[in-house]
Structure formats: C-alpha cells, structure tokens
Design a protein around this nucleic acid. Structure first.
Length: 182
DNA sequence: GGAGTGATGACA
DNA sequence: GTCATCACTCCA
C-alpha cells in the first residue's frame, strides 16, 4: 500500500485559489477526534472565496476585521466561523500574505453540507486560526489516487445571492461527480 | 415554505 | 448601546 503524502504548506500559498479549490477535491481531510481516534475522509465538495474583488468573500474590498483577519494570513491556516448562529463552517486560508482568500470545505466522506461536516468532525471555533498540522489534530493528506478531472463538476456557489449577478454565478464551487453504476 | 440561532459588523 | 444580516439545516 502506498503511503499518503503530507501536503507542504507552500501548496496553500499559491494565489490560484480557485484552482486549489478544485485540486482539493479527492484530497484527504484528516481529523483527530476528541476521543483520540483519527478519521480520514475524502473531500467531496469545496468552494473558493478569492480575494478583495470577490463580493462573496468575507474579506471583500479588503475588509479587514477581527473575524476576517485570518484570511489575510499566508495559506495553510484554518478559518472557522459560526454561520446563522448555528453551524460552524470550515475554511482553509489560501494565498500569500495580505491576499484574503480561502477555500470552504463543504463536504467530505459521507458528510454532505458544511455545517454537518464540522459537526461530524467536532470542529468548532476552537479550531480557528490554526495551522493545518497533525499536531493540531486537523490536517490534509494527498492520497495515492486522485479523482479524474472529468469527475469534478464546477457550479455556482451556494447561498450567496447577495453578492450580485456576477459573483453569485461564477463557477467557484467544485463537487465530485458520483459515478453512476454501469 | 419558514423558523431558529447568535456572532458579527455598521451605525449612533 | 441598537439593529440587520447572514458561505445553513431541519421541520412542516
């Protein structure tokens, strides 16, 4: 069996956030649960939030606040925030320093939906602003086999109609196509 | 189709 | 201090 490779931090510092969101599909999201057990789940759904011009990005127009500050950091940190007062959403900060961008992890393994994923993995605000690392209990691995390009679909992002006709429609959401049985 | 839920950011 | 706004999920 081929060992999974850890992903170098430099990989997340690329400014090509949208390409990273696509590449993350099929990578393995790894989590050490509070009870010490380790879960490894293939990422099935992501969304890119890319830079000051992206009106759907929390840090659009370079809005730098206590919450969005982490998006301006170099890639490789987590950005976890509470949505609708109910759900924690897990993002991975991308890009070089001072470029606000992140990839939202919307689904992995059997868990579809960003809120359900964090619940299943016991991810909360405690995991915000942490470098992805095994020591921190949350990291990524590159599996031996990645999905075929043909099996990754690009669609508009979810729940961001407020971002206007352009930014609410750009195909920044990536989802693995479930292969139909033949 | 509609409510719940509470941090966040804008405004005063 | 107040208030409107949400990168969602569940139940009817």
């Amino acid at each position: 069996m081929k060992a999974a490779k850890a992903i170098p931090k430099s990989w997340f510092r690329s400014s090509a956030t949208v390409a990273l969101a696509r590449e993350l599909i099929g990578h393995t999201l790894c989590r050490r649960m509070p009870d010490g057990r380790i879960r490894r789940l293939p990422i099935t759904e992501t969304e890119a939030y890319d830079g000051p011009e992206d009106l759907a990005c929390h840090a659009h127009t370079n809005r730098r606040t206590k919450r969005t500050e982490v998006m301006f950091a170099r890639g490789g940190l987590t950005y976890v925030y509470l949505c609708y007062g109910v759900h924690w959403l897990l993002n991975i900060v991308t890009g070089p320093e001072n470029y606000p961008a992140a990839v939202l992890i919307r689904g992995a393994g059997p868990h579809d939906g960003p809120g359900k994923l964090t619940k299943a993995l016991a991810i909360t605000g405690d995991q915000n602003r942490q470098p992805l690392s095994r020591a921190n209990g949350l990291w990524l691995e590159r599996p031996a086999d990645l999905p075929n390009e043909r099996d990754i679909l690009a669609t508009p992002r979810i729940g961001i109609d407020y971002a206007g006709p352009h930014w609410s429609q750009v195909p920044y959401r990536f989802v693995i196509r479930v292969k139909p049985k033949v």
